[in-house]
Amino acid sequence: MTGFLIRRIGLLVITLLITSAVIFLLTQVLPGDTARLVLGRDARPEAIAQFRAENGLDLPLPMQYVNWLTRFVTGDWGTAFTVGNAPIRPLVLERLGNSLKLAIMTGLFSVPISILLGVIAGLRENKRTDVIISVFTLSVVGLPEFVTGLILINTLALGLDWFPTASSPPGADILDWFRQLTLPALSATFVLMAYIVRMTRAGVVDELKKPYVRTAALKGLSYRTVIVRHVLRNALLPTITVIALSFGWMVGGLIVIENVFNYPGLGRLMTGAVERKDLPLLQASVMMVIFFFASANLIADLLYGLLNPRIRLE
């Protein structure tokens, strides 16, 4: 188990190194002269040279990367010049917290219903129920978040006035969570559902074809027992990975949703940073998201390993 954990964490570190290098290259090297970007077009050459020296921009690329990474790992994330030179770290962490609240709400909505629909569709493969679920997930649910989000706002918020059109982070009150987060979480749920239902259905369909299902049926077990005790145990294993992957997917999806609902999460922060070309802020936010995504994958791997006896954790 420890060995497995160490190897997986090693893998996580490698992944993070590669992705951070990609992000570094994209944000630090491609945009050209950061000094000019920060100091403005009319900055004097001496000021630029001084800025470059101070910020290590005159060093060779790998050195710049190491410096950048060291600063980032030690918590020195710099300041956001677009947000009144506010320190980046508390800002990003606060917004991340808001996004996580939304992500949790989405998870609570989407995971149980998706698994249920996926299992039903799989058990009734190619029957009418399956076709209805498939059409539902492929059409209504497969739309971009901004489409479903706008439809929800126009009906449930503007039409019926049940929810606010723009959401803000909820407090401790449970009702407040529902009031603020139902609409954005619902539009994220729609997108996730398409994916999770499809994967769950495939898992069930594949598993039902395996010979051990016949063995179980020929023991005289009832249909219910065969499905619950024998089939779902195996069929839902891949779904765990799918859910973790959709956590990462969600982070991408939330960028759009937070914009639709004007929700102050990490996604909004990032689009703002993109619009105003605040690269340090963008770097920090992106690295945070990637870290979360990669960790979710790690947790999925561990869970999968723990629940699946075929993967040995020695």
Partner: peptide
């Protein structure tokens, strides 16, 4: 009847056993 009075020994034992029980 199945399992109690009539039972089957299947061909490919590994595939015929539930991998996670």
């Amino acid at each position: 009847l199945w399992g109690k009075h009539i039972s089957l020994v299947p061909q490919d034992a590994l595939a015929a056993l539930n991998p996670s029980l």
